[in-house]
């Protein structure tokens, strides 16, 4: 899923071209759906989040700018925010089965090929302390709140907040080099 492929489709979507929007959906929806399904766990909610996200993408295609990230990053942002909203509305309490830090699969081969930006992100995530990485993963992939991360990692709230805060700071330092 390259920017070069998705950007023209998004431009045509902004121009009201339904076929381009359908193609954009065809290419990106499996990634969007996978992200929200992992957060929401329940299929019907993940379907709702995907649906709402694409409706928003159709209406807001014209407001995309390159400094908002790649097209796919921008779309993932929209979908994740919607999933977080749905979690709040449905008062979802997250129960996660911890599997290998509950992060992304070690083998990313099934997902789209990593871009250079993603490789850099992986490297920077690897540089974090294991606890920091684990806390950020739980929050990002499973949509856990600070309190929910506390439950899963059995550490005090202050410690969890500090792992996440410091982890994010280190990540920024690494990514901005």
């Amino acid at each position: 899923m390259e920017q070069e492929q998705l950007f023209p489709l998004l431009c045509q979507t902004a121009d009201g071209k339904r076929e381009a929007f359908a193609e954009l959906y065809e290419i990106t929806s499996p990634q969007i759906y996978a992200v929200v399904l992992k957060m929401l766990k329940r299929k019907e909610l993940a379907e709702e989040a995907t649906q709402d996200a694409f409706i928003k993408i159709w209406h807001n295609a014209g407001s995309y700018q390159r400094n908002k990230g790649t097209v796919l990053t921008w779309m993932v942002s929209i979908a994740r925010y919607r999933a977080l909203d749905l979690m709040r509305y449905h008062s979802i309490r997250n129960e996660v089965v911890l599997e290998d830090e509950s992060g992304p699969p070690g083998d990313a081969g099934e997902a789209s090929l990593p871009t250079s930006e993603q490789k850099k992100l992986d490297e920077c995530m690897d540089e974090l302390d294991q606890q920091q990485r684990q806390a950020i993963h739980l929050a990002y992939f499973n949509g856990l709140s600070h309190h929910e991360v506390v439950k899963h990692l059995s550490s005090p709230l202050g410690t969890i907040k500090s792992w996440i805060r410091r982890g994010l700071q280190s990540l920024q330092r690494c990514l901005s080099i």
């Binding site: 499996p30 990634q31 992200v35 990053t73 992304p104």
Partner: peptide, 11 residues
């Protein structure tokens, strides 16, 4: 970019 490491699932 992290979201793009999740294996795709067709809706």
């Amino acid at each position: 970019g992290l979201g793009q490491t999740v294996p795709p699932v067709k809706p």
